[in-house]
Nucleic acid binder design. Structure first.
Length: 459
DNA sequence: ATACATACC
DNA sequence: CACTGGTATGTAT
């Protein structure tokens, strides 16, 4: 376990997400990046909060381990029966008749900025600020700079790094250009963000008698002609696998996984679970440290343990991943379930300033809701303290609301109720720790059933 | 229904 | 100096 002591290399135990294998990060000196990120973060409030979160996750893993140790041979045979039944049901649902593309623009925001200002060409570029980077171009990634990294750390890793502030109008414009291409291949394509989409090309392939790979080639060329931007594409029998595939030959590349069960199983057999959308840092650690699972195939090997330790929805998901399954249908209509607005500002203990911030957020939220003719009846206030601790407080109302005044009055009540509480929490160390609120955010949430009601009112 | 955590871009 | 913002979903109570 402890083959190296943290005393010698403390940065090794700081589990940032910044050193994961990611497209364009091949030749990066991970040790150096890890060390720099650690050095820049250590001692900060943010860092301390991360340590707290890590300790919590470690505890969760310990609990799971203990649970795992209690499982008897009898239990295992019982859960193996459950797992086998689940897997045969899943297997029966396997659909290899569809060909899905996942299209993913390469370093999208950075590429758009370079397209608009060619003088940026050939330079390491980050879109974002000293606080946060949205996207880094491939040259910057060579230094370990990447999305979700704070800019001041990125500049340490790459002093030449050029920063460009985000301009979502531009990205939306180019996103719309790409979205004019997709319908030629699938009128019901699914856009998941400004730079990503799923395209069902089954019919086009049949009509024109060409392969998914050929469609992908053509689509990438068309997107380049229409936008001047490159993208990468994955081709696979389902959306989950197509997404994994689009990352394989990034940038400006594609990868085809044929519609063949053997090919899928071979692909899955060595695929690290972290490559799967929905399996992040925490889930990866849990599965690896409790059950020794690191590849998708091992989900099947440990299926009994998975069913014994995890909920139905989790175990169903893990087993389907182990079998290389994913969604193959096009959901008819995706309705939004929530709308939110949040803003980070420098920590303050001034209550009138907090109410002023709340006012601004309520205004933004109300405007956003009116744009889409939405209203909701569950309002959530989100607060982040100066120590990065996040709290949420919610109320469900009798009526649906969307006016600034309604939002503000209910949110203010929620905030008011918190202010003495944060004072009490800090009560142990009087004067020294003011009730600072770094950040507060406002959510208006809508229940699924409520949305139907809303449409009746507003549509 | 509420609170909190995880994940994705 | 400086660690986002928007949405969905899972887990626990």
């Amino acid at each position: 376990m402890a083959s190296t002591s943290d005393g010698d290399r403390p940065w090794q135990s700081y589990h940032t997400v910044f050193t994961n294998a990611k497209a364009g990060m091949d030749g990066v000196d991970k040790e150096k990046v890890q060390k720099t990120v650690y050095e820049m973060s250590k001692g900060s409030k943010y860092f301390e909060n991360e340590q707290r979160k890590e300790a919590f996750i470690k505890q969760k893993i310990e609990n799971l381990r203990a649970q795992c140790a209690q499982i008897t041979a009898n239990d295992i045979s019982y859960f193996q029966t459950i797992a086998d039944k689940k897997m045969s049901e899943l297997e029966a649902s396997r659909d290899l008749s569809k060909i899905w593309l996942h299209s993913d623009m390469d370093a999208f925001y950075a590429s758009v900025e370079t397209l608009v200002d060619p003088s940026l060409n050939g330079k390491p570029l980050a879109v974002g600020s000293m606080s946060m980077i949205c996207t880094a171009n491939y040259m910057a990634r060579k230094f370990g700079v990447r999305a979700a990294m704070p800019g001041f750390i990125a500049r340490k890793l790459c002093p030449e790094l050029i920063f460009v502030p985000p301009d979502f109008k531009k990205y939306t414009f180019y996103s719309e250009l790409t979205r004019k291409v997709f319908p030629k291949y699938d009128p019901h394509f699914i856009a998941t963000s400004l730079d990503e989409a799923y395209i069902n090309v089954t019919e086009i392939c049949n009509e024109r008698g060409i392969s998914g790979g050929e469609v992908a080639e053509e689509l990438r060329n068309t997107i380049y002609e229409e936008t001047g931007l490159t993208c990468s594409v994955g081709v696979a029998p389902n959306r989950l696998l197509a997404k994994v595939c689009s990352d394989i030959n990034k940038p400006n590349g594609q990868f085809v996984l044929p519609n063949d069960r053997r090919a899928v199983m071979t692909f899955i057999s060595s695929l690290p679970i972290r490559k799967i959308g929905g399996i992040g840092k925490v889930t990866e650690s849990m599965l690896r440290e409790v059950l020794g699972i690191s590849t998708c195939e091992e989900m099947v090997h440990k299926s009994a343990h998975i069913c014994a330790l995890f909920s139905h929805s989790s175990s169903d998901f893990f087993l389907s991943v182990g079998l290389g399954l994913g969604k193959t249908d096009t959901p008819q209509f995706k309705m939004r379930k929530s709308i939110s607005s949040e803003r980070t500002f420098s920590a303050t203990e001034d209550e009138s300033l907090l109410y002023q911030k709340l006012d601004e957020i309520a205004e933004t939220l109300s405007n956003d809701m009116h744009k889409e003719d939405l209203s909701g009846r569950t309002l959530t206030l989100k607060l982040k303290t100066a120590s990065f601790e996040v709290r949420t407080r919610a109320v469900s109302l009798q009526k649906y609301i969307n006016s600034k005044q309604d939002i503000l009055s209910h949110a203010s009540k929620l905030l008011k109720a918190e202010l003495p509480l944060s004072l009490r929490l800090m009560g142990r160390k009087p004067c020294l720790t003011p009730r600072q609120l770094l950040n507060h955010c406002l959510y208006l949430e809508q229940m699924v059933a409520s949305l139907v009601y809303m449409i009746l009112i507003y549509a």
